[in-house]
Design a protein around this nucleic acid. Structure first.
Lengths: 339, 339
DNA sequence: TTCACAGTTGTGACCGTGCACATGCGAGCA
DNA sequence: TGCTCGCATGTGCACGGTCACAACTGTGAA
């Protein structure tokens, strides 16, 4: 027996209902696992759904329930390993929780671009926003546009503690700095990330805290842009005066550029110069020399991020997971200073 | 004067209509830039929208028009530079065209995982799908699930020419191979990508074509998994018998691993061993030695991909852009063989 | 004057789903 | 028997847009 298919459109619950000999509401109940459905009825409905290749219409559901089940991700430099990993993890976690994810990329860091991206997300009626970007400016924009969906960022911000995931970037940076100090270094530079990225700020804070705690004098951190190119050029500048024996770089890519510059200047890493990175990208173990760095679990970060956002969406407020502490991975780019 | 806001819900076109003293249909026409609207009416409506902070409801629009304006991206290894760059470009291009993008990540390459991802996308009523994954299996799944939305992949597949973007990966691979042959190498290995990735296959084909055209005998390519780790381990295996003087790696990460293995074995790159990569990731210029590689314009790829998909969606079938030819970037990881 | 016509605006139905409420039915109990 | 109660199911409407069609206006030509 062939079923009569509706002409152009996709089958709706009413089509299913008609063929199963029930009301559309019964079909809806089957879809939503309502308890009071006779088993035989449920089976019949499910069978018709199968025959018709029925798929619920998300737009209709969203319209009727007033909820989009969509989470927005506002991201910058999403082609880099760290952000990309987090985004992937966020998408997986959201999908497991029955949510959809929409990503808006920042063309640049200016207000106009941020507003465009936020508008794009708001037009889709996202229920929450995850920020992976220069958060300071984004937060300003969020407030100024009077956007009232909950938002979350991957790093703690200090001023927005409710929205923050407490990944202890500061502890990670202290770990890296302590490692250098313990090796005997006293003249240590810090190559930081862009100014208003929270990660960059937290890592810088960790560096300064540890240096202060150990009474090691510091120089002003250099603000970079996360790229290997920047690390290379900054390295060339720095190496004009060799008044340091170690550098703590705010991410692995810039560390790679630094190593490149050091080698070009005829220095051996780690004999003449120790370098520590941050992130532990998969390539870091294969740099030459293999990079000592601080491992971040980006995937776990993404998962917790979604957990936090969902609990903030009024869902099951499951116990808030504790702080993630990054881990120092010692490889071969660090050694005691040569005197 | 304060406007009377509707209580809980967001304002709808009917709220705007009431306050502007027009019908809801007139508001709709303003939204859709209908030509026959008196300028004064349009201005009044726009002003009320501004006052009410009105935002159109995407779900309602999608429901009534029967179009979701959403494109799905099916992606694997989306945390790697190449895929991540393409995804970002796709998102930007789609946004510019007024589309939304939803990404589904493949947990693994098995059929179950692919079907779950495709289901996720279909539940959102995506109008088209971009595939950045082991396409062979995904295409099988697409056919078997009788999914009838148009789909596109970043690379030409041979058998699915309608859905393909003709980026000449083969030409890129030939460029790399030719470079090695021209330097004088005759014993060249190829470290390929995973078996059913179209990119991997195309690059392998280019390698074999060029070797054949120059009458250089070849050995069977080694199938890798795109990671630096794999390149490292494959390199250690290969270097047990040093019956080659050059390797063409299917991407830059594996090339990095190869260099690592070569150095550990006491070989100098490029004096004892020449290595060519593929992609030109931003870090490739800072490897040691800086990597000779084939540059792909991932962003352009993403843009054209969306252009193709949109034209396939029946939109403005704008002239199909020509083939992108990758470019060989010669750095310091290649040299004539030492005899 | 009358009519055709273009420009501008309004009316009501419809898209697919979920909710509130109503209804039918059988079991348990006084 | 009559009543209550809980399960299983049905009816009608709301959600916020768009579409088809109707209606009203003013203008120019016959």
């Amino acid at each position: 027996m062939t079923v009569e298919l509706p002409k152009g459109r996709a089958p709706s619950i009413r089509d299913v209902a008609r063929l199963a000999g029930v009301s559309h509401q019964t079909v809806s109940r089957v879809l939503n696992n309502h308890p009071s459905i006779r088993e035989s009825t449920r089976a019949r409905v499910l069978q018709v759904m199968e025959e018709l290749q029925y798929r619920p219409n998300r737009a209709a559901r969203a319209l009727s329930k007033g909820r989009s089940r969509t989470i927005g991700v506002l991201s910058a430099s999403s082609e880099q390993y760290g952000p990309a990993s987090s985004i992937a993890a966020i998408q997986n976690a959201a999908r497991d929780a029955g949510y959809y994810v929409n990503t808006a990329n920042l063309a640049s860091g200016d207000r106009e671009s941020i507003e465009a991206a936020l508008n794009h997300l708001m037009l889709q009626a996202v229920e929450g926003i995850v920020v992976i970007a220069p958060q300071v400016r984004v937060f300003d924009a969020l407030e100024q546009m009077s956007i009232d969906v909950p938002y979350v960022t991957l790093q703690s911000t200090g001023r927005q503690s409710d929205h923050a995931l407490s990944v202890d970037q500061i502890a990670g940076a202290r770990l890296a700095t302590r490692h250098l100090i313990d090796l005997g270094h006293r003249n240590i530079y810090h190559l930081a990330g862009p100014q208003d990225w929270i990660e960059a700020e937290a890592r810088m804070r960790g560096f300064l805290d540890e240096m202060g705690a150990r009474d090691v004098p510091t120089t002003a951190p250099i603000l970079g842009d996360w790229t290997a190119d920047f690390g290379y050029h900054a390295g060339r500048e720095l190496l004009r005066m060799r008044d340091f024996t170690a550098i703590f770089s705010s991410n692995d890519q810039m560390a790679l550029g630094l190593i490149h510059a050091a080698r070009e200047a005829g220095l051996d890493v780690p004999r003449d110069l120790s370098i520590v990175g941050f992130d532990d990208i998969p390539e870091a173990a294969h740099f030459w020399p293999p990079l000592t760095t601080v491992r971040q679990d980006f995937a776990e970060l993404g998962r917790r991020c979604i957990a936090l956002l969902l609990s903030s969406l009024g869902g099951e407020a499951e116990g808030y997971p504790g702080t993630i502490v990054p881990e120092l991975i010692v490889r071969s780019s660090t050694a005691p200073p040569a005197f």
